[in-house]
Amino acid sequence: MPPLSDILTLTLATAWGATDLLRAYYRGYSATGDVLELGVQTQSDGPVTAADLAVNHYILQHLQTHLPAAAFGYLTEESYKEQPHNQRFPQPWVWIIDPLDGTRDFIDRTGEYAIHIALVQNHRPVLAVLAVPEEDRVYYALRGHGAFVVDRQGNSQPVRVSSRSQVQTMALVVGRRIWGDRFKQLLAQFPVQRQVRASSIGYRIVKLLRHEADVYLSLSGRSAPKDWDMAAPDLILTEAGGKLTHADGSPLQYNRGDISQWGCLVGSNGTNHSYLCCAAADILTQV
């Protein structure tokens, strides 16, 4: 088993390569000028493009080529259907990967898409990388070592969430499309009323890292965020000084068999986290 610092170096290189590949698909042509078609397929759980599949293949190939096979499991958005239903990976280390977080926004050319790569041990992430291709930036974290952002030139700097503590001055990041009457009622009564909008989940967490928002909120309905949506943002937000939990205050658990993160999830800069969790839980008992 290589040291985690070496695995992080490998993961960052993988993320930059995946960034280049996604940007090529986003623009519609490769570095050699070949046309790249998105080939959008509509599936029951959302659209899938040739970019999703190509980047998924690239990330898996890059990691599996350099890491011992027996030690690692791989759970990705594009391959999980091939796994036995509701069975956790038995390996001590499990990669949880979203090769394209925000496929709809990728198709719509909003620029608000991301790449998530997390390494999980004992159901919690220990290493995470979140790439934002259209900004040429990669956020990363090792458990216990803080969160950082690095640019294409290799300039790295620490990342910390905001210190805003007065609820009336805080901002809540929500999706550009809000689904579900119950979630709308939760938002209407939630203590933080100022809202900013962002599309993919990774991009919403980046809003907290950049002090453009202080709180993230989600509520499952007929579906829920998946492990690959949350694992990388979870560790990076936590290492940046924030918190991400269920509304009852319990941490998110990964590689449990069920890939869905059901219920209400609350992310914040940490200053009022318990209060915001209690507020969300109280509201949900009434709506």
Rank of each mutant, 00 (worst) to 15 (best):
M1G: 11
P2Y: 10
L4H: 12
S5V: 13
L10P: 10
W16N: 09
D20L: 08
R23T: 08
S30G: 12
G33A: 08
D34I: 01
E37T: 01
L38K: 07
Q41W: 06
T42S: 09
L53E: 15
N56P: 05
H57A: 12
Y58M: 04
Y58Q: 06
I59W: 13
Q61V: 00
H62F: 07
H62L: 05
H62R: 15
H66T: 03
P68W: 12
A69N: 11
T76H: 14
T76A: 15
S79G: 10
S79Y: 12
S79H: 13
Y80A: 05
K81N: 10
E82L: 10
E82Y: 07
Q83S: 03
P84K: 02
H85Q: 07
R88Y: 02
F89P: 01
P90F: 02
P90D: 04
W93I: 00
W93H: 10
V94T: 09
I97Q: 06
D101G: 03
R104E: 12
F106H: 04
F106W: 06
T110Q: 09
G111I: 03
G111H: 10
E112D: 14
E112W: 09
L130N: 03
L130K: 01
V138A: 01
Y139A: 00
Y139V: 00
G144N: 03
H145N: 04
A147I: 02
F148H: 11
V149A: 04
Q153C: 02
Q153R: 09
G154T: 02
S156K: 09
V159A: 02
V159D: 10
S165I: 01
Q166R: 14
L172N: 13
V173K: 06
R176C: 07
I178K: 12
D181F: 05
D181Q: 14
A188H: 15
F190L: 09
V192I: 12
S199G: 15
R204A: 02
I205C: 13
V206D: 02
V206L: 08
L209E: 08
R210A: 04
E212Q: 13
S220N: 11
G221V: 04
A224Y: 14
D227W: 09
W228S: 05
A231V: 05
A231W: 10
A231N: 08
T238E: 15
G242M: 04
K243I: 01
S250H: 14
P251V: 00
L252H: 06
D258W: 07
I259C: 03
S260E: 15
S260C: 08
W262A: 05
V266A: 03
V266G: 06
S268H: 07
T271G: 02
N272R: 15
N272Y: 02
S274L: 10
Y275T: 01
L276M: 08
L276I: 03
C278E: 15
I283M: 08
Q286L: 06
V287L: 12
